[in-house]
Design a protein around this nucleic acid. Structure first.
Length: 453
DNA sequence: GCCCTATTGCA
DNA sequence: GCAATAGGG
């Protein structure tokens, strides 16, 4: 069917290595780039506050890049299945292209839309773009999915290497008459009353060009120290790519290949290997979500349903959220998060362990807070990693592995630079719980899980 | 991807 | 008295 090609952008806000966009350009018809803000489809999780901030700026950046190339980004809001179908009808489009999603609710939308459009004679095609290995391609010897990371990643690495990234298009010709679009400002994605985004503006530049520069700077300047320093929150040794990958401003294929190239030309084999395995954890989280769609709600290990969470104490939860626990490393992490929409990975593990094991608050409350405050939270990695810390997840830390925030600080922030930066006053506070007593109580509560096994 | 405790070896 | 290490949660 002839007629313009619609590229439905979702978590892939880039023009380089975007197979759906590439396929649209190859059709030779004008291209309509569409983004749908969908808070209505069944089971699709509404974005958190920090995510909305990032999305606003990333969409603005994508629109600017499309305008430089002869078109623009069309914005619509509403349930995606209806909105995309309407856009197809209004534009008399001949094809709709998108990059695949792996959550259950998202797949349901995409599958229904695909069927409906094909019935109307519209070409529909989808592509792999946000994971290096799609969930159904990685199987154990007996055909199961993996539940332990190391064999999972080994199996991935034994598959054919991820394809090379596609080059960035020079032109994206739009139709003579562009379809109607919403005004991005009308979506009110940015906070106004109050405007709490100052720290985010100071910290981040969303958008594809900045994402590419960040990868380059990381590989050129920081890769060498990554393996040794990645666990030190004050070292600045990590890639800071997580939000860029979450929004698809850069593709994992690009990260993969540029990292492999950097390692080939340098002496950073151990660091490159380690960094790629972090991409592997990201893959593992998406695969786990694909096979266990209730990841954000249900314990992956059902015996954890027996865990005796005490009645929620809102003041404890709030002290944690605001960084007022009196535990320096915990407060530093929670304030970094509140200010910047980000937290160093080592500190994420520490604050999560503290919430779950010392405060005995259900991991879901922590997951919700991170969902609302992190710029990089996605529907797979956020719950996956919370379950990992809780002990209820895939290849999780055993429950009895309880982080001691003071020892973690001594080990990974020995000169106290990170704590001094984010929580210089934390030492003056009373600690809201006794680390030793609460650790013991958590170990005793864990007995219920062991009995339920 | 950990922490705690007890024990051992050495001073 | 301390550091290193094993064993177990």
């Amino acid at each position: 069917m002839t007629g313009p090609s619609i590229v439905w952008f979702r978590d892939d806000l880039r023009i380089a290595d975007n197979p759906a966009l590439r396929a649209a350009l190859d059709r030779g018809e004008p291209v309509i780039s569409l983004y749908v803000l969908d808070a209505e489809s069944d089971g699709v999780r509404p974005l958190g506050g920090a995510a909305r901030w990032w999305l606003h700026h990333s969409l603005a950046s994508l629109d600017a890049r499309l305008r430089e190339r002869g078109s623009l980004l069309i914005l619509r809001r509403g349930p995606a299945e209806r909105v995309v179908a309407e856009t197809v009808r209004d534009a008399a489009a001949g094809a709709v292209l998108w990059n695949r999603r792996y959550g259950e609710a998202e797949r349901a939308v995409d599958t229904a839309l695909k069927a409906g459009l094909r019935e109307d004679g519209v070409e529909v095609e989808s592509f792999a773009a946000s994971v290096l290995f799609e969930p159904w391609t990685v199987r154990t010897g007996v055909g199961d999915h993996y539940s332990v990371f190391t064999p999972f990643w080994k199996a991935c690495l034994a598959l054919p290497a991820p394809r090379a990234p596609l080059p960035e298009p020079r032109e994206v010709p739009g139709p003579a008459r562009a379809p109607a679009t919403d005004d991005l400002d009308e979506w009110s994605l940015l906070p106004t009353d109050p405007d709490w985004a100052e720290g985010l503006r100071e910290t981040w530049e969303p958008g594809e060009p900045a994402a590419r520069r960040r990868l380059r700077a990381f590989l050129d300047d920081d890769l060498g120290s990554y393996d040794a320093a990645r666990d030190e929150p004050a070292a600045g040794a990590t890639s800071l790519l997580s939000p860029r990958l979450r929004w698809g401003e850069i593709s994992p294929y690009t990260v993969w290949h540029e990292t492999v190239d950097a390692a080939r030309s340098g002496r950073h084999a151990a660091s490159a290997h380690r960094f790629l395995s972090e991409l592997g954890w990201r893959e593992f989280a998406w695969h786990t979500l694909f096979h266990f769609p209730a990841l954000a709600d249900k314990n992956l290990k059902p015996e954890f349903d027996a865990f005796p969470w005490p009645r929620l104490r809102p003041t404890m939860l709030e002290a944690w959220q605001r960084g007022r626990t009196g535990i320096p490393l915990v407060d530093a992490g929670m304030r970094e998060l509140w200010r910047t929409g980000y937290m160093h990975n080592r500190v994420r593990m520490v604050v999560a362990s503290f919430l779950i094991k010392n405060l005995m608050i259900d991991w879901r409350r922590g997951e919700e807070w991170f969902w609302d405050t992190l710029v990089d939270a996605d529907t797979a990695n956020n719950p996956f990693n919370w379950q990992w810390v809780a002990g209820s997840g895939a290849d999780a830390a055993p429950y009895f592995r309880i982080f001691n925030p003071e020892l973690q600080a001594a080990k990974f922030d020995p000169d106290g630079r990170y704590v001094a930066r984010w929580a210089p006053d934390a030492d003056e506070r009373d600690q809201i719980v006794d680390l030793r007593e609460t650790r013991q109580a958590a170990l005793e509560a864990y007995e219920a899980v062991k009995r339920a096994r």
